[in-house]
Design a protein around this nucleic acid. Structure first.
Lengths: 338, 338
DNA sequence: ATGAAAGCGCTAACAT
DNA sequence: ATGTTAGCGCTTTCAT
């Protein structure tokens, strides 16, 4: 590429000072009509684009934010990302993607990038928040929004769902179908998201008068493989479940594929329910009954909150709880009559 | 956050000039051991992080690159992204994500962002390259790498697969199984990727002595919905196919789900083969036979090429063809004997 | 309504 | 081996 024209080139072409060029672009109302026109014409003529590095340095802002996720290969985050990106574009930000792979150091790396003024703020969608935020004093925190996860030690702007209520809804659906032996494949407890979903499972069972048998909960890690193995362990029990509530869709898919290998038919023999409504949940066979999270809106809201924090809006510290929705498809049915 | 310490604060604390601080960080070997130690100690003491906006302005580089895709919600791009990101991190770059939604204006927007020095270069994974690059003279192009797609008018650094050969492999697999009525659900022709896969389909049929009946190709658009409808049209023919080669996995999934609704069993009645080996291809039922693209390596290679272009490496204009691999799973089988 | 000039924080050329 | 200094390109006082 040829050398970029600078504001000086425009100033020379329009025979004005660089300050006037800057004004023509930022506060055109301050200039006389004739001058403004002349400058804008010069801008076009020399094909000028403001240099963002210089502008950022001068303004002490980058107009970029980091979206930091646990594993960017998880399609779930993509839809959140597209929501963040949509809102960011409207607000004049660009979105950088960070990815911690569950490493606390990698998370701190993104905090450092904000310190280094590579971005103005962060949206965190990682687990292990307590560990990450542990030794950072409150006033050392960069502008920050927590999405999906949350942090209980002190109040941060947060957008999330009510995991407990959503999980309870899912389990109530199974109870309403008549299931009495309902198992749970959980996420990595004690992470707060997994704990919430497990609590909702226990809550729904308890309120219906069923006892939550601890042996009916096996711990997974949100991967399909852990759905496979968790399901195998559950079905090997003396009194195997007739329904399994999985803490996410991938584990539900793993469980269903395992059940097929074991010779069970879903939902005829066993019902399975997932969580998230990822994009392939409806295309799966059988189509997955699951809990939909408003991913796109979660992303938009997170960006909106972050912008609030960035411009120092008054009550930027709010916690927004987004609604969830049980999506009943083909992986759940009444229990088989024996 | 408190005010960030600057290089001046370090200089004062270490009683040296700012230049010496800069050297301690960039070219420590130039300094006397004692000075270097003193400076680094001061850096720690005042908790200094270099301001990247200032560094970028001074160095005239951003150390960021844009990865521009057609639709970032497509999980396929994610794995490419993770490859780009891995290599970028190793080379000291951060990756910005751009997303054109197939709009030429949106694509140009990212070109403008490079002009505005928001990023140093671009990796393009969008269709419509000819339209996008149309009226840009060669010397107006920013540092640029094309991935997956390609552009024939003039030579750009490119990483891609041999779509024709890969598609031919897939179709040969069906031929080897004994199929003689093989249909194709294509991507949006005349885009080059779709054309290549269609050409491979025709080539494999022709070389085996089968005639490629144009009515056996229906045009899709890479969405699951177009797999559904394309499959329905094919199966409504007088002499329906016994096997369908789909130009990507989503369309193959759509086709399989449609076949199930029509009462066909895959692969017993009809074989279906996809392309890409997206992350859910193996979890699908039946597990999808498909053509695997080395997505992660494609991403890494693209970033490597872009870095070459950025540092002005000699033969940065190379075109890299990555290998593909036919992954035979459960969606293909010999044709049913009538 | 416009211009002059300072300076954001850093690096690199030049000087010593 | 270290310091001095001149910018990178822009925005924003402060003057006029």
């Amino acid at each position: 590429m040829a050398r970029q024209p600078t504001i000086k080139d425009v100033a020379k072409a329009a025979k004005v000072s660089t300050a006037t060029v800057s004004r023509a672009l930022k506060q055109p109302e301050l200039l006389a009509n004739a001058t403004r026109e002349r400058v804008l014409e010069a801008v076009r003529q020399v094909n000028y684009t403001p240099n963002l590095m210089a502008r950022n340095l001068r303004r002490q802002e980058t107009k970029s934010i980091f979206l930091v996720v646990r594993d960017m290969r998880n399609p779930f985050y993509l839809e959140v990302f597209s929501g963040v990106e949509e809102e960011a574009r409207a607000l004049g930000y660009t979105v950088l993607m960070g990815n911690t792979e569950d490493s606390i150091e990698r998370a701190h790396f993104y905090f450092d990038l904000v310190r280094a003024r590579h971005a103005d703020g962060l949206i965190l969608m990682t687990g292990k928040l307590p560990d990450i935020l542990d030794d950072l004093a409150r006033d050392q925190l960069p502008p920050l929004v927590v999405a999906l996860e949350y942090f209980t030690d002190f109040h941060l702007p947060t957008v999330r769902i009510d995991n407990e209520a959503a999980a309870a809804d899912a389990v109530r659906h199974l109870i309403a179908l008549g299931h009495t032996r309902i198992a749970h494949i959980s996420g990595p407890i004690p992470e707060i998201m997994s704990t919430g979903r497990h609590d909702g499972y226990v809550m729904a069972l308890t309120e219906s008068g069923q006892k939550a048998d601890p042996a009916m909960t096996v711990r997974g890690d949100f991967t399909m493989a852990s759905g496979h193995s968790g399901c195998r362990r559950l079905m090997a029990r003396d009194n195997p479940p007739t329904a399994i509530f999985c803490a996410n869709d991938e584990m539900a898919m793993g469980a269903i594929n395992e059940l097929r290998e074991l010779g069970y038919s879903v939902p005829h023999d066993i019902s399975v329910i997932g969580f998230d409504d990822i994009v392939f949940a409806g295309a799966f066979y059988p189509p997955l009954t699951t809990v939909r999270q408003p991913r796109h809106d979660i992303g938009k809201t997170a960006m909106r909150l972050l912008n609030g924090a960035l411009i120092g809006a008054p009550n930027a510290n709010e916690e927004v709880i987004m609604p969830t929705e049980l999506v009943v498809r083909g992986s759940t049915a009444p229990p088989k009559q024996n």
